[in-house]
Design a protein around this nucleic acid. Structure first.
Length: 240
DNA sequence: AATCTGAGCAACCGCACGGGT
DNA sequence: CACCCGTGCGGTTGCTCAGAT
């Protein structure tokens, strides 16, 4: 379940996330947005990849944990039969569920069910997987065809957003909950603002300017964003 | 009570893709 | 056009816990 803490060759921390790190990451994403992972490793004790994963799987607003409904299971089974192991695409159809979580759920529960319902499922699974393989990330058109919602949203999104991120980040009724002091602020259209304001943002740009948002509203001063935060995360210019 | 085993899940790793230069 | 780099995805690993023996 939890991995022992270690450090990679760049001195970046690996292993289990602490609640404190979660709070710091949440605060960072609140300020800079969930598409700006490239900037983060310059300041953070973790690599951007790790931070992105943690955000996408855990800290993201509206994320659902455990307790899959029958409807959700059915959707996963159905989509997996169609798409194979394209978890991110499947996740796009299940708001609040991450690809990683769906993948885990499949391997722990649904795989058996799929085998139970379809004795030849190994054939069908390998077939669907073969069909899916080789088309990985080349099939945005197909994804859109499968999910009209993606089409509806795509025109409003940053071009760098994947289909699953589009759905997960671009919620129309975004609500963040207060939980153990973590971030969590009902900020209405906060997640939509960076995309709307910053339509010309280039992912490779190093001089990215944070959109002019009233951060006092979005991220008010709080006990967890103080000296300790700055010292351990080295976000010297982080004046949240 | 001690040990074994499998399920569940968080997190890491490596690869492919896409955009910039 | 080729190369480089950042990002996202799927596969896999490492660890804990609960139930069985």
């Amino acid at each position: 379940m939890v991995r022992t803490t270690s450090y990679d060759e760049n001195g970046k921390k690996k292993g289990t996330w602490t609640p404190e790190e979660d709070r710091k990451l949440a605060a960072y994403v609140t300020k800079y947005g969930c598409w700006n992972w490239r900037q983060l490793p310059k300041h953070a004790a973790r690599c951007g990849k790790s931070c992105r994963l943690r955000w996408m799987n855990y800290l993201r607003p509206n994320i659902k944990r455990g307790n899959y409904t029958k409807e959700e299971d059915d959707i996963i089974l159905k989509l997996h039969a169609q798409l194979g192991n394209r978890w991110s695409t499947i996740a796009a159809h299940l708001p609040g569920r991450s690809d990683n979580e769906i993948k885990n759920h499949w391997h722990t529960s649904l795989k058996k069910r799929a085998n139970y319902y379809a004795p030849n499922s190994s054939d069908s699974e390998s077939k669907s997987m073969n069909e899916a393989s080789g088309t990985r990330r080349k099939s945005v058109e197909n994804q859109n065809a499968i999910s009209p919602t993606n089409l509806e949203l795509s025109s409003q999104m940053s071009p760098k957003q994947s289909s699953s991120e589009q759905l997960s980040c671009y919620t129309t009724d975004y609500q963040v909950i207060q939980e153990e002091g973590i971030l969590m602020e009902n900020s209405g259209s906060f997640w939509t603002e960076p995309f709307l304001v910053d339509t010309s943002f280039s992912s490779r740009s190093t001089d990215y300017v944070v959109p002019s948002i009233d951060w006092e509203l979005v991220c008010p001063p709080s006990p967890f964003i103080g000296h300790e935060f700055l010292s351990s995360f080295d976000l010297d210019d982080y004046n949240c």
